[in-house]
Structures are given as structure tokens and as C-alpha cells.
Amino acid sequence: MLLDLAGETVRLLAERAVLWRRTVLVADVHLGKSDTFRHFGLPVPDGDLDTDLARLSRLVLDTGAERVLVLGDLVHSANGLNPDVVDRVASWRSALDAELELVPGNHDRFDPPASWRVRQRPDGHVEGPFRFVHQPHTRAGVYTWCGHVHPAAVVGRGRHALRFACFWLGAEQGMLPAFGTFTGGLAVRPAPGDRVVAVTSEGLIALPGMR
């Protein structure tokens, strides 16, 4: 789905990502989340890490992007970063044909392992007409991309309510859905004029006139 924002053309992707020029934007990957659960003795099955890494590789391949820019929460927590996880991500990284950059999120309270070759960008990093942050925070005169909220759109009332992860695009700020497989969502209440695009099993669907 192509959109014009701040004089730039961006493409929203059903893989819960945004393609801008040669950059793939994603937010809230939460690598190692199930490992964090297991670290605390909660027997959650493994599988989300490999799934999410493969989805990222696929995105880079399909778009020909040269860079993946993560808007925070690349890693779920330090407790989930056991040596095995670090190694699996490192070997994925070495096969990834793109730069990997991170605007740190509230979960990224430490530097990612060196073997992952992640270039850190400051929160509020500006490039062209865009500004990149983790938590929603606008600044006049520049369009901000953010994550953190894991936005979900709820359509319909009561029993007929349907729930979708979504992009939420306001006049000054665009919010990405969480990329990670093992993530929940928070229902959002868009303002009039906001654009909400739902991620469904059959691609993106723009929701008109959401209240």
C-alpha cells in the first residue's frame, strides 16, 4: 500500500513493516521473548525466534532493502539472551545482506551483542523529512515514526468485534504494528482524520472513518 507522507512515498507492508526508499522500518521485534519466559521457568515453546528472523530476512530479500531500521525493542530482555540465542541471531546476521540499525526502546536497556553488528541510532534520530523514535512523541515540523504501543484496531461492537494489528498514521506521527510473532496488542482510539490500516491474513485493509 503506497502512501505519500511529508513529500516522500512510503509503502506499508503486510509483514508489519514500512518500506521507505531502501530502508525497511520495523518496530517491537522482541527477540528472545519466549526465552525470557523459559528463563523464569515458564515452559513456553520455542519457535518464535527462528520465525521472526526468517521473516526479517524474507523482507530484505523481497524488497531489496539495504537497511533494516528497528524502532526499539529489538530484544525482549537481557534474561532472554542466553548464549544460544545470541549465536542464532549472530549467524542470522552474518547471512543478512543489509545494515541493521536500532533506535533503542524501553526493552533495550543494554547494548546488543557485538556479533550482531547493530548500529545504534539515538532516540529522535532524523533523516530527511522523518524522525525516528521508540515511544510516541511528536515534534513540530517533522514527521515522526514510532512503535512501542503494539497498536491494534478493533472493528465492530460486542460479539462481532474483530481485532487486528494495525498501522496508525496521524498527521504528525506514524505508528507501526509490533513485528514480533509473540506479541499482543493494545486497542487504539484514532483521532478524526487519522489513517488506520489493518493487517489481515489476506493483506492490508485501510479502515475508513474509525472512531
Partner: peptide, 22 residues
Amino acid sequence: RNTGRQIQASSSLLFDVFLRYD
């Protein structure tokens, strides 16, 4: 108490993870 939000997940999300991976 000890781990706060690190291991918060709704049971329905956990159910999905089990269904998908185990």
C-alpha cells in the same frame, strides 16, 4: 514481584504460541 513486565502475556497469546510451536 521479581520480573514485572518481562513475562506478561495474555493466556490467549500463550495459547497461540503453544498451538503454533507445540
